[in-house]
Design a protein around this nucleic acid. Structure first.
Lengths: 128, 128
DNA sequence: CGGTATCCATAGGGATACTG
DNA sequence: CAGTATCCCTATGGATACCG
């Protein structure tokens, strides 16, 4: 998996234009709410307000922007049902689904190591 | 928030205080340069300037801040060699190493799907 | 070399009000 | 319900200069 044959080249440094494009992707995926929202859509279709309620702390504005960004990147699909009151549903696309496992990996890692990190932070802050 | 039965509760919505702490971790890990830097330290010890050179676009200030944050979280260790000129080396801790695979997963995903995403963006922008 | 310190512009993002 | 539209403040982060 690694290119550890004495070559310190990494996936991100391989070529500069590729690097920048990877950065674009990371900026989207790593943006404040994206991972959370993608994970939230894992189980299936969700409505706007459902998502909003299950992601504590997100504002209406940020949810809209996050969803638009993910839609633009082809990771989720937005379906508007022409009824009143409006019903809008979001679901992962095939592409989005390929990201789901990775996202879960990161989220699970975070959950598993929160305590370690908290301790490390305390230790660090005490030292200084 | 309500916890209905049959509700698709997710890892992030499980409990509110846990949610917030996961957010903290995600904010660190998902911050602009962290994933890249962690990945960069995968192969082993690196010096400050080495890292800076292999992460195109990062400023000295941002690299310092990113490294400090990761150090505070116990993900990397900083070693200062008392020589002139100074020599400072960074390497992943055991904890940091547990994150490496996940990080690589995300980076690899980004690399693998850049083209898909670019196409999706174009298609989206054309439509609107 | 490996940082701080400072200044400063801009994007991120909250709060609130309004709408089809 | 599912958004826009504003306003406005703050954190992020680039550029530059200096330092042990």
């Amino acid at each position: 998996m690694t290119a550890e044959d004495g070559d310190p080249m990494t996936v991100l440094a391989r070529r500069d234009d590729t690097t920048c494009r990877v950065r674009d992707v990371l900026d989207r995926v790593g943006s404040k709410w994206s991972l959370t929202v993608i994970n939230e859509l894992g189980p299936g279709k969700r409505r706007f307000t459902e998502i909003k309620n299950s992601v504590p702390g997100i504002s209406q504005r940020m949810l809209t922007e996050t969803l638009r960004g993910l839609e633009r990147d082809g990771l989720i699909e937005r379906t508007v049902h022409p009824v009143v009151p409006p019903r809008v549903e979001y679901e992962l696309t095939t592409l989005g689904r390929t990201l789901l496992d990775t996202v879960r990996g990161l989220l699970d890692w975070a959950l598993d190591h929160i305590d370690d990190i908290d301790k490390a932070r305390e230790a660090y802050d005490d030292r200084s």
